[in-house]
Computed example of a mutant assay.
Amino acid sequence: MSPKEIKDSGISEALDYITYIGLGVSMGSLVLCLLIEAIVWQSVNKNKTSYIRHVSIVNLALSLLIADIWFIIGAAIDASTPACSAATFFIHFFYLALFFWMLTLAILLFFRVILVFKDLGKSQMLAIAFCLGYGCPLIIAVVSVAVTAPEDHYTRKDTCWLNWDNTMVLLAFVIPALVIITINLIILIVVIFKMLRRTIGDKPRAEETSTLKVVARCIAILTPFLGLTWGFGIGMVVAPDNKGIHVVFTVLNAFQVFIFDR
């Protein structure tokens, strides 16, 4: 999310340690998440909504896992080699896929809570989910490569990530990510408001309390699900030299194991 690396070598080294430890923990949790999904798949997909939700969760976890793997590969590759461009493409694509699968989950939530009288078939919902989850990131990643190819400014000189100084192609990641975060936050607020308005006041006191607990649980789970931790990336874009923002962003996103906590 940052247009440049932080100059303080001590902070930079600390961030490297946090990143690799965090990614290790997250990758282990994501593998465990996928294994559990495989074991309980038949029992949790008894209706259409649950099925699409779990398809989204599996692909979200898979996208984040593959993105993290490519991130580590990219960190080990010489930035001057063609392999660096390939690694950057896959990092770009799979991290974008993570965000678009988050958007898919948010749209599913909005659709089932707000548009209760609308209905689509399972195959239609699945087609829309995959087009959104993988089609949109692929288009953005391919266009980014095509636009920067003539000047060979797709990657940075010193690291395997999207260029900023020459082409600002980093915006092809930052803008979609922040737009999706904003959309998801709006959807989350609308859904919670709808749930509260629909239930509170017309049910017994005990059920009101139960509903509030459900809403609180939704907030606790969906907030990280919908990528609000990445919102700290705005600070990195605006103030890339701020050490504190770098540390907070790295800790929150390196240890992104929230998908497993559901």
Rank of each mutant, 00 (worst) to 15 (best):
C131M: 10
C131E: 11
L132K: 05
Y134D: 02
G135N: 04
C136F: 15
C136Q: 08
C136E: 08
L138Y: 11
I140V: 15
I140Y: 03
I140P: 10
V142C: 01
V145T: 07
V147T: 10
A149M: 14
P150S: 11
E151P: 00
H153Y: 05
K157G: 14
D158T: 11
C160E: 07
L162N: 07
D165C: 05
T167C: 06
M168Q: 13
L170P: 03
V174G: 08
I175L: 07
I175P: 04
P176C: 07
P176I: 08
A177N: 12
L178T: 03
I180C: 06
I180P: 03
I181Y: 05
I181K: 05
T182P: 04
I187L: 00
I187E: 00
I187P: 04
L188W: 03
I189Q: 02
I189E: 06
I189W: 02
V190R: 03
F193A: 14
M195A: 09
I200R: 02
K203H: 10
R205T: 11
R205G: 11
A206T: 14
A206F: 11
S210Q: 15
L212I: 07
L212P: 00
V215A: 04
A216S: 12
R217N: 10
A220S: 08
A220D: 08
L222D: 12
L222G: 06
T223N: 01
P224Y: 11
P224R: 04
F225I: 13
